[in-house]
Design a binder for these strands. Structure first.
Length: 749
DNA sequence: AGCACGCCGACT
DNA sequence: GTCGGCGTGCTC
C-alpha cells in the first residue's frame, strides 16, 4: 500500500503560515485520523511541536516527499468544536464548489484575530532611573535594538506587544534577557468588549395565545425527540419572537446554546433589545458594524461558555458554541441568507447540516415562507406550524384594494398616482396620520436615454446602462466606470438626451406638488449616506417629523410605525418582469410585507396596490393576504418548468476576456455533461418510467449581464430532481482539462 | 509566530 | 580571526 498523507492547517496565528501543509501518516496512526481532527506536528526548522487540524487526505503529495515530515500524535481531548466546523467547511466545499481554504475562511473567520483577544503588554517593573542607567550601558555596547526598546520603556511604563515587535522592530530574542532579569514583565489582558454591557435583565413573562402555545409545545416535543427541522409560518404581528424565546429557554435549560439568524437589514435595536431584556448578559450580538476584533471577542465568549445565545446575520451561523442545540432563522425567505461570495452557500441548508453534526435543531420562521421551504414542509421534510392571527387581539388586519393602472390610463390619468390613492392620501393627511409610499423597484438610480432613438447610455466595459448619481456623474454599478453626462447621444448624435432622475425623487416631487403643505421624507441610497443615515430617517419618521415617507425595499423591512394608516404601492409589477424564476415570489413577498406596514396598532390600516397586471397571482394573493393561494400557483409553475424546489438546479458561470473562449468552454462542458442526461442507475426498479436522476442541460447562453469589466459571461444550467447526479457532474467538471483563459463558478439552488 | 542562517561590527 | 546581535526568510 502506498503512503498516506494528510493536508493540515497549522494552528499559528499569522498570515504567512495561513495555508496547507502536508504530513505523512505514520503506520501506527493509519485509519485513526479523520477530518477536522486536532493533531501534533513538528513544524519549522527547529521542528517545534505544534497543533494542526486535518483538512483533507491524499496519496500523492504536492510537495517534495523527501521533505515531508510525519504526524506525531493525535490530540485526544481536543474541544470538538473546531473539528465540527472544519467538517462543515468540507461539506460546503462539496456542495457549493470552492477550495477548502475558501470554505475554511468562511467558517473560521476569527483565526487571524485570535491573538488580539488576549492582548499582550510589556510592563516596566523597575524605576525610570534604573531603566535610564541600563539604557546607558546598552548605548555603550551599541546594541541598537535594545536601546530602542529601553528608550521606549523608560518613556512609557506599559508597551503593547505589537508596538514593540512591529513598530519598534525589536524581536522577542532581543528583549527576552530583560524579562529574565526582571526589568520588565509580560502581561496579558483579556479585555472582552461587550457591546451591551450594563443592560440589566428584567425577567419578563408574556402570555402566549393558543396558536403560540401550540407552536411552542410542538417544537419543544421535536427538540426533545428527533429534532426535525420546523417551519413556523406566522403572519406579521403573530408573535413569532415570543415563540422563539420560549423554545430557546427550553434549550438553555438543557445545557445547550442557540444561534438566532436575522437578516442584517432587520437587525434593529428593537428586535435585539427584546432578547436582552429576556436573557440579559448571556446574549451576544454580531453585525457588520462590529470590528473584526470585537467580532472575534464575541465568538471567543461563545466558545468558552460565557454566553448562550448569539444573534446576528448569516455569518453568525459559524458561532463556535461547544454544545449547540438550536439554530433559528428568522425571515427565512430573505435573499440575504444566500452568500454572494464563494462558497455561495445558503444559510438554511448549511444550518441544517451543522445541526445534523451537532445533534441540534433548526427552526425557520417567516410570514411569507420561501416556496422552497414551504414545499419541504408540504412533503413532510419539515414540521409545519401555522399562526394565522395577530398576537395583540385589538389590532386588525388592514384592508387592501387593487387599482388597475391600465384603467387609469384609459381615463386619461397619466401620472403614477391613481385617483383612489390620491384621495386616500388626502384623507390621511387631513386625519394627521402617516402614509408610506413604496416604489417596488430595484435600480433606484435613473439612467440616461436618448429621446430620439431611445438608446440608453451604456458602460463601455459592461453590458449595462450607466446610472446617474447625485453628483451629476454617470457611473457603472458593476465596474465603477465613471463619466460626465454626454451632450450628444453616443449612438445617433441627437442632442435630445436626458435623465429621468431616480424613481423616488420623482415620486417625492410629484407628491409635494400635489400636497404642498405635506412634510415628505425620502429614503434611498442618497438620503441614507453616512453611518446611521438609515436609522436617522426611520427614527425621524417614527417620531412624526414627517407625514409621508417615500422609499424602496428599505422602508418595508421590520420597522413598526404605529401611526401609519395608509400604504401605497405605486407599481406592484415592477419586480415581476425581472430576476428569473423567483420574480413572482419576490413580488409576493414585497407586497405582503409592504401591506403589513399599515395599521399595526389600534388604528385601522388601508393599503392600495397599483398594478398593470392586477390579475397576476402574486398581486392578487398579496392583496387578499392569502399565502396558500400564492404557494399553489407558484409551485405549479415551478413544477411545470422544472425549477427549484421541485428540481435542484446547478448554474455554471463562465467568464473570460475572450468571448469565444468562454463560449467554447461552456460548449465543451455541455458536451461532457451529455453522458449525465441518461439514467445513472439504469436497471433499478425505481427508474421505471420516471427518471429521477436524469440531468437536464440548458444553454450555454449569454448571461443576463453578458459582459462585466470587459469579461464575457456565459451560463449553463443543469437541472435534476435529485441532488446527487448534479454533485457527480460538478466533480467531473472540476477534473476537466481547462482553458486557462476561462474562469468558472458554481451556484447551487 | 518563531526559529535558524548569515551578515556585519566590535573586541580578545 | 572569532564572538554575538540583528535582519531576513522559511516553515510540509
Amino acid at each position: 500500500m502506498s503512503k498516506q498523507y494528510v493536508n493540515v492547517i497549522v494552528d499559528i496565528v499569522h498570515t504567512a503560515v495561513d495555508r496547507v501543509f502536508q504530513y505523512e501518516v505514520p503506520e501506527e496512526l493509519l485509519g485513526k485520523l479523520s477530518l477536522g481532527m486536532k493533531i501534533r506536528i513538528p513544524f519549522g526548522r527547529g521542528n517545534t511541536v505544534r497543533d494542526g487540524y486535518i483538512i483533507g487526505f491524499t496519496e500523492k503529495p504536492d510537495y517534495d516527499p523527501e521533505k515531508i515530515k510525519q504526524v506525531q500524535t493525535v490530540e485526544e481531548d481536543a474541544m470538538p468544536i473546531e473539528g465540527q466546523l472544519i467538517r462543515l467547511a468540507a461539506w460546503m466545499k462539496e456542495h457549493y464548489g470552492s477550495t477548502m481554504i475558501q470554505a475554511l475562511k468562511t467558517v473560521l473567520p476569527m483565526k487571524k484575530k485570535m491573538k488580539p483577544v488576549q492582548k499582550k503588554y510589556l510592563v516596566r517593573t523597575v524605576s525610570q532611573e534604573a531603566c535610564g542607567e541600563l539604557l546607558a550601558v546598552y548605548r555603550k555596547k551599541k546594541q541598537k535594538a535594545r536601546v530602542r526598546f529601553l528608550e521606549a520603556l523608560m518613556e512609557d511604563e506599559v508597551l503593547p506587544y505589537e508596538v514593540v515587535t512591529q513598530r519598534l522592530r525589536v524581536s522577542p530574542a532581543s528583549f527576552r534577557p530583560f524579562l529574565e532579569q526582571g526589568i520588565c514583565r509580560l502581561d496579558t489582558e483579556e479585555s472582552y468588549r461587550n457591546p451591551v454591557r450594563g443592560l440589566l435583565k428584567k425577567e419578563q413573562t408574556f402570555l402566549l395565545n393558543e396558536e403560540q402555545r401550540a407552536a411552542v409545545s410542538g417544537m419543544t416535543a421535536s427538540w426533545d425527540g428527533k429534532k426535525e427541522t420546523c417551519l413556523l409560518h406566522g403572519i406579521t404581528g403573530s408573535g413569532k419572537t415570543e415563540v422563539y424565546m420560549e423554545l430557546i429557554r427550553h434549550v438553555i435549560k438543557n445545557g445547550r446554546q442557540a444561534i438566532v439568524l436575522i437578516p442584517e437589514i432587520a437587525l434593529t435595536y428593537q428586535t435585539v433589545m427584546r432578547f436582552y431584556r429576556q436573557f440579559g448578559e448571556r446574549v451576544s450580538i454580531v453585525n457588520s458594524r462590529l470590528s473584526a476584533g470585537e467580532k472575534s471577542d464575541q465568538f471567543e465568549r461563545a466558545r468558552t461558555g460565557r454566553i448562550d445565545i448569539m444573534i446576528g446575520p448569516r455569518s453568525a451561523l459559524f458561532t463556535p458554541f461547544p454544545n449547540l442545540g438550536l439554530i433559528i432563522i428568522d425571515e427565512e425567505h430573505e435573499t440575504a441568507y444566500k452568500s454572494e461570495t464563494v462558497p455561495k452557500y445558503h444559510a438554511i441548508e448549511t444550518a441544517i447540516e451543522r445541526c445534523r453534526m451537532a445533534d441540534a435543531m433548526v427552526v425557520l420562521g417567516s410570514a411569507t415562507p420561501s416556496a422552497s421551504s414551504y414545499y419541504k414542509a408540504q412533503n413532510g421534510e419539515y414540521l409545519l406550524f401555522q399562526m394565522r392571527s395577530r398576537a395583540k387581539e385589538e389590532s386588525v388586519l388592514p384592508s387592501v384594494e387593487i387599482v388597475d393602472l391600465r384603467e387609469e390610463l384609459k381615463a386619461g390619468n397619466r401620472t403614477i398616482f391613481s385617483r383612489r390613492l390620491k384621495e386616500l392620501l388626502k384623507e390621511t393627511l387631513e386625519r394627521k396620520e402617516q402614509a408610506l409610499l413604496f416604489l417596488n423597484r430595484r435600480g433606484y438610480a435613473g439612467f440616461i436615454s436618448c429621446r430620439s432613438c431611445g438608446e440608453a447610455v451604456k458602460c463601455p466595459h459592461c453590458d449595462v446602462s450607466l446610472t446617474q448619481h447625485w453628483d451629476g456623474k454617470l457611473k457603472c454599478h458593476y465596474c465603477g466606470y465613471e463619466t460626465e453626462i454626454p451632450k450628444f447621444c453616443p449612438s445617433c448624435g441627437s442632442r435630445y438626451i436626458a435623465g429621468f432622475g431616480t424613481g423616488t425623487q420623482k415620486v417625492e416631487a410629484m407628491v409635494s406638488s400635489m400636497f404642498p403643505e405635506a412634510r415628505i421624507l425620502r429614503m434611498d441610497t442618497d438620503t441614507t449616506k453616512g453611518k446611521g443615515g438609515h436609522d436617522a430617517v426611520l427614527a425621524a419618521f417614527a417620531d412624526g417629523k414627517a407625514d409621508i415617507l417615500v422609499g424602496t425595499q428599505m422602508i418595508v423591512k421590520g420597522h413598526d410605525f404605529p401611526n401609519v394608516t395608509l400604504v401605497g404601492i405605486l407599481a406592484a409589477d415592477l419586480s415581476l418582469h425581472s430576476g428569473g424564476y423567483e420574480a413572482g415570489e419576490r413580488t409576493f413577498q414585497l407586497l405582503t410585507q409592504a401591506a403589513g406596514r399599515a395599521g399595526r396598532d389600534k388604528l385601522p390600516g388601508q393599503v392600495v396596490i397599483q398594478s398593470y397586471a392586477p390579475s397576476h397571482y402574486s398581486v392578487e394573493a398579496a392583496a387578499s393576504q392569502d399565502y396558500e393561494s400564492f404557494y399553489w400557483h407558484e409551485i405549479l409553475y415551478r413544477r411545470l418548468l422544472h425549477y427549484p424546489p421541485v428540481y435542484r438546479m446547478m448554474s455554471l458561470l463562465f467568464t473570460s476576456k475572450e468571448e469565444t473562449a468562454a463560449e467554447r468552454m461552456a460548449g465543451k462542458v455541455k458536451e461532457m455533461a451529455g453522458e449525465f442526461e441518461g439514467p445513472l442507475k439504469a436497471g433499478t426498479e425505481e427508474a421505471e418510467g420516471q427518471r429521477h436522476d436524469a440531468v437536464e442541460i440548458i444553454g450555454p447562453a449569454k448571461a443576463a449581464v453578458s459582459r462585466i469589466n470587459d469579461s464575457y459571461r456565459y451560463v449553463l444550467y443543469a437541472k435534476c430532481e435529485e441532488e446527487q447526479p448534479l454533485l457527480a457532474l460538478k466533480e467531473k467538471i472540476e477534473q476537466m482539462e481547462w482553458d486557462r483563459n476561462v474562469l468558472y463558478q458554481f451556484d447551487m439552488e
